[in-house]
């Protein structure tokens, strides 16, 4: 584009227009504006191609959750499970240490608390309140340690321990039988496949039944915090 001149102006005029002094000035300004726009557009095009702004901040990856949190295994393993898995059952071999036909003697301290022998120091007595179960033989059969016994004297095998629990915890046992208490897995639709129920002792320690506490899995992350700072690796505790 070349400089506008008075001559040009006259040539460009359509017929029927009177030339007025301010017109030239206005036309000069129009040219100036249009040139400015050309420069602006070209600059803008360059800026767009160079992607100068508005580039999305890269997202800091969230560490994958520890597979331990995806594990469907139970908290504990029952005697029946160990038998099924053909694992070491030496813990249940009572007469490896105890003498047959000689019921063990329980000893108490001055507050009537059961004194747990060193060999059984892993046992925490915490079943029920007010020391109600301060007696091994409420559940274990003192004459045959490889059996359990209910309060009314029924003999129960270790593999059937849930029946023993049910002898006191009736309503819970009822819930458990229909699958309303405790863990289940498999098929809700029994015609498609079996349901697997867990034994009481798969979740509850019979000596201290309250369900154990555990570390929680990592909490949620906000969408926009990922662009700002790296997410610290979650500890699996």
């Amino acid at each position: 584009m070349d400089q506008p001149s008075a001559e040009d102006d006259q040539r460009g005029l359509p017929t029927g227009y009177q030339q007025r002094p301010h017109r030239m000035n206005s036309r000069f300004k129009a040219t100036l504006v249009l040139r400015g726009l050309v420069v602006l557009f070209v600059g803008l095009a360059a800026a767009f191609l160079l992607n100068l702004w508005g580039r999305p901040a890269p997202l800091h990856p969230i560490p994958l959750v520890d597979p331990a949190f995806l594990d469907t295994a139970t908290v504990r393993r029952s005697y029946a499970d160990l038998v099924r898995a053909k694992e070491d059952l030496s813990d249940f071999d009572c007469y490896a240490c105890h003498e047959k036909n000689k019921p063990p003697v329980l000893r108490y301290d001055e507050h009537q608390n059961l004194l747990i022998p060193r060999e059984h120091s892993d046992i925490v007595m915490g079943h029920g309140q007010h020391g109600r179960n301060n007696n091994c033989f409420n559940c274990h059969n003192e004459t045959n340690l490889e059996l359990l016994q209910t309060r009314d004297g029924r003999q129960v095998k270790f593999a059937d321990s849930s029946q023993l629990c049910g002898s006191c915890h009736g309503p819970t046992y009822e819930d458990w039988e229909v699958g309303a208490h405790g863990r289940i897995s498999g098929y809700w639709n029994r015609s498609r496949g079996p349901i697997k129920r867990q034994d009481c002792v798969n979740c509850h320690n019979p000596h201290a039944p309250p369900f154990p506490s555990r570390p929680p899995a990592p909490g949620p992350h906000l969408l926009h915090e990922l662009a700002e700072a790296p997410v610290p690796a979650a500890t699996a505790h």
Binding site: V33, L34, F41, F48, G54
Partner: peptide, 22 residues
């Protein structure tokens, strides 16, 4: 239009393009 019209429309076009790019 006159230079004011061009300026006004030009500036608006620039903003339109910025928006389109975004």
């Amino acid at each position: 239009g006159d230079w004011r019209y061009y300026l006004w429309m030009g500036v608006l076009t620039v903003f339109c393009l910025l928006g389109l790019n975004a």
